[in-house]
Design a protein around this nucleic acid. Structure first.
Length: 552
RNA sequence: GCGCCUGUAGCUCAGCUGGAUAGAGCAGCGGACUUCUAAUCCGCAGGUCGCAGGUUCGAAUCCUGCCAGGCGUACCA
């Protein structure tokens, strides 16, 4: 509806230019928005104010000219007024609202779907946890965000793929094997030393027990055993990670192994490409990329003097590979502690002429865990952190996803276990889900009274005249543009707020007005309205990966 | 030192990319279930938007400088 209004305004300006009542100037930026104050109409625009400078006339004057010339062949606008310093406030004709509600009901699950993505090939890479331990809450936050972005981008017409990058090469995997080996030896010899920076969690012992049952470790040399344990341990942990994610309603289209970059020679190839551009040099026995040419503080090592590639090397080659695979929009979700990495990766890509804005990196700020007023320190190595699985088992997928998604990812998330553990109430997700269940209950009630709502909305909609009813429909109208905006700015937390507001408006309406009553046509009209609410909540929750229960 | 993120009600956070009187949820106080689900609703109270300048018709939002907190600044991954 905002778009329709914007078009009317543009047509109106054209008319004014042709007529000479306004000086022809380039179209200024202006917005059509929903005012907070209902007295300010259903929609408002600042068009006249943003024209004022170029027109050398007062905003209110211009507003008056625009209102007088409004090009509105469909009688979309009921009335237009000047407000404040020069806002134009629009009141939309009631029939438009009924049309919109009908539209929602007809489209059902597809209401809000769009094609603005134009099939653009897009990748969202997220979680990408090292297969050296179970997922923690930070991973969970990234998982919820990435998964929801995929759902929203897909809904908005992007050709989107989700990918998990598996760091299955390098030092940390070696350390995993050594850690398991030590724990295994300690079963028979408690004094056997444990690596100082080994993985501390209980899961290491569990893996040792499990693998010892499957394989004979006794006959192997230390390094052979450790290598075997690396391999098997990594696979088992990865399997567990996949299960935890699936349980969290997160699935991936693609799993990409770091080790494949080595075995396929892609790292060597990437380095050759960079060398070809003259951006590679040798110093102190190591190989460096001239990332400082592209905004980095200093140059970075890709191959150490011991001949091993750095993690940075595989990351560069990984991203060059993403480019080669033809992705036009690439979104990475990283932990905030990786932010120092952004410039150097982008710099390395720029040596190949890949523009910096091709890669969108979202940094997830920390999830801080509180229990009983004290902070619970999390550390991947300590093994003391609460895992995603533990939290999900305790609170449920719906609550965890909703809470994770309800904050902008740029701000740290304080997660009070005690509070969220409570399964009964106090959790915003229940507020939204309850509205959905309530609507379902209304339909059950109506059925017992032998009231059946036709498939297609009809003229009874005209019985919807109360302010709250129009406000609800107006709220529904915002959904498609909200989804479009989120597909652009990647801030899905706004959807959780939207749903909370929508549910709130409905709860308020429900408490104030009787829906199923003796008045048949009114009942039918209100059930249509409720159906619209149900569709919106279900669609919104689906995009968040949260269920919409019919009974609570 | 340098870089990134953050600072809005007692607490946790929104604030639609510069708009009209800054909003929710918790927590506090007071109300509403013989009536469609009270996991709900209504009311009260709570703010120098970290501080100081600047940009303009207009700033929580943009620019600069401070202050405070978090994270990062490896030939680690």
């Amino acid at each position: 509806m905002k778009k329709k209004l914007a078009k009317i305004l543009k047509d109106t300006l054209d008319l004014c230019y042709r007529e000479g009542s306004l000086r022809q100037v380039p179209l200024p930026e202006f917005v059509v928005e929903v005012p907070n104050n209902p007295d300010h109409g259903h929609f408002a625009t600042n068009l006249a104010m943003s024209l004022a400078g170029e027109q050398k006339s007062s905003p209110r004057n211009i507003a008056e000219i625009i209102i007088r010339h409004l090009v509105d062949p469909d009688h979309f606008i009921l009335k237009a007024e000047i407000g404040g310093a020069g806002f134009i406030n629009f009141f939309v004709a009631p029939g438009q609202w009924y049309d919109l509600l009908s539209h929602v009901i007809n489209l059902k699950d597809d209401y809000g779907r769009s094609s603005i993505g134009k099939g653009k090939k897009t990748m969202v890479e997220f979680v990408s946890a090292n297969p050296t331990g179970p997922l923690h809450l930070g991973h969970g936050r990234g998982a919820a965000l990435g998964d929801t972005l995929c759902r929203i981008l897909d809904f908005s017409g992007y050709d989107v793929k989700s990918e998990f990058y598996i760091n299955d090469a390098g030092q940390q995997i070696k350390m995993l094997g050594e850690s398991i080996y030590s724990r295994w030896r300690q079963f028979s010899d408690p004094s056997y030393p444990f690596p100082s920076d080994g993985y501390q969690g209980d899961y290491i012992q569990e893996l040792a027990v499990e693998i010892a049952k499957e394989r004979k470790l006794e006959n192997l040399a230390i390094h052979e055993a450790a290598e075997l344990l690396s391999e098997l341990g990594k696979d088992k942990i990865l399997k567990e990670i996949k299960e935890d994610l699936a349980n969290f309603r997160v699935t991936f289209d693609l799993w990409y192994k770091e080790s494949d970059l080595y075995s396929s020679g892609k790292i060597d190839h990437a380095i050759k490409l960079i060398e070809k551009e003259g951006m590679l040099f040798e110093k102190d026995g190591a190989l460096w990329i001239r990332t400082s040419r592209f905004g980095d503080d200093k140059d970075r090592v890709v191959r150490k003097k011991d001949g091993e590639f750095t993690y940075f090397a595989s990351d560069v080659s990984y991203h060059l590979d993403k480019w080669k695979r033809g992705f036009k929009r690439v979104i990475n979700i990283w932990g905030a502690d990786h932010h120092g990495y952004i410039t150097r990766v982008k710099a390395a890509l720029e040596t190949q002429g890949i523009p910096g804005d091709w890669l969108e990196i979202l940094l997830i700020q920390l999830v801080k865990l509180w229990e009983g007023g004290a902070e619970v320190k999390m550390s991947k190595r300590s093994g003391k952190y609460v895992t995603l699985k533990e939290l999900v088992d305790e609170v449920g997928v719906d609550a965890v996803r909703f809470v994770f998604l309800s904050k902008d990812h740029t701000s740290p998330l304080d997660f009070d276990i005690g509070l969220v553990k409570k399964k009964d109430s106090e959790n915003p997700v229940y507020y939204v889900q309850y509205a959905h269940a309530r609507v379902c209950s209304l339909f059950r009630k109506a059925a017992t009274e032998n009231i059946h709502v036709p498939e297609q909305p009809d003229s009874t909609l005209q019985r919807l005249v109360v302010d709250e009813e129009i406000a609800l429909i107006r709220k529904m109208a915002e959904f498609p543009s909200l989804i479009e905006e989120i597909a652009g700015d990647l801030g899905p937390h706004r959807l959780t707020y939207y749903l909370t507001e929508l549910a709130g408006s409905f709860h308020r309406y429900y408490n104030r007005h009787r829906i199923v009553s003796d008045d048949r046509t009114l009942t039918q009209a209100r059930l249509f309205l409720s159906l619209g609410i149900r569709i919106l909540i279900k669609n919104g929750l689906r995009l968040l990966g949260v269920s919409a229960p019919e009974v609570m």
